[in-house]
């Protein structure tokens, strides 16, 4: 366990991308604040048409950035990185606004980043085993394909490519403020960081069943989604390095 003083001396920003999350957002903010009162909370309201923004503001515990139009998860999260970079935060944490991620699991992904063990820590639904995760076989197959391709590209096994529960260090804040991919960001970020010599870690974290709403990827659009993501992953791998990997410096 990490000493709380060290954690408190750092400026940690929790980025919550939110699109029409008025049912969950207030609860999520309060929960985070209760356990981590020193963490700063930033809600990125991605052009919601409900009261997400007003409700998040009304808690008085979170800053809220309203994007003028709905830009998608990637652009929303990148806004958080830009904000964090501009305001000199040391650590950022991506946390979904839909109640899927659990506050009690935050330490698991933040502490290794604070300690400098990794540059990005992923909270994974199935580091232990994929089979226990409740989902259709088709989805599981898709996940396996992603994992295989990702392994081929960066030589590191990441079991939960699409988890949005992640912590990042200061170097990555600056890097991703510039280069965060927009369309299907989660798997692409892994390739981008792997290729650029950043250290990625993965740890099992419990997650709640989705409270409401459907997966962002309906099954019918699965093949389309897979193709696009795979293309994005390959392209991320083929692109020239954005910065020199640390071992060269």
């Amino acid at each position: 366990m990490i000493k709380s003083e060290k954690r408190d001396s750092l400026k940690v920003l929790i980025i919550i991308p939110a699109y029409n999350e008025e049912d969950n957002i207030v609860g999520v903010i309060h929960e985070i604040h209760e356990d981590f009162p020193n963490f700063y909370i930033l809600v990125i309201n991605d052009g919601s048409i409900d009261n997400t923004s007003e409700l998040a503001r009304s808690t008085g515990l979170a800053r809220v950035i309203d994007l003028p139009v709905n830009m998608g998860i990637g652009a929303a999260v990148q806004t958080g990185f830009k904000y964090a970079h501009k305001n000199g935060y040391d650590i950022t944490l991506q946390f979904d606004g839909d109640g899927q991620h659990m506050v009690k699991e935050i330490s698991k992904i933040v502490d290794p980043v604070i300690q400098g063990d990794v540059d990005m820590m992923i909270g994974s639904r199935f580091v232990q085993n994929l089979e226990s995760y409740k989902s259709q076989p088709v989805r599981r197959l898709g996940i396996k394909i992603f994992n295989f391709i990702s392994y081929l590209l960066i030589r590191q096994r990441i079991k939960d490519q699409t988890s949005g529960f992640r912590a990042f260090n200061k170097e990555l804040i600056g890097f991703l403020a510039k280069y965060y991919p927009v369309d299907y960001p989660e798997p692409e970020v892994i390739i981008l960081l792997g290729k650029n010599g950043f250290k990625i870690g993965e740890v099992f974290t419990q997650m709640r069943e989705r409270q409401g709403g459907a997966s962002s990827i309906p099954l019918s659009r699965g093949p389309f989604y897979m193709t696009k993501v795979l293309l994005a992953m390959f392209m991320a791998a083929l692109r020239e390095k954005r910065i020199k990997p640390k071992s060269d410096v």
Binding site: I65, D66, L67, M71
Partner: peptide, 10 residues
Amino acid sequence: LSQEVGILKE
């Protein structure tokens, strides 16, 4: 631009 607008508004 949208991101910048959002950050500046805040």
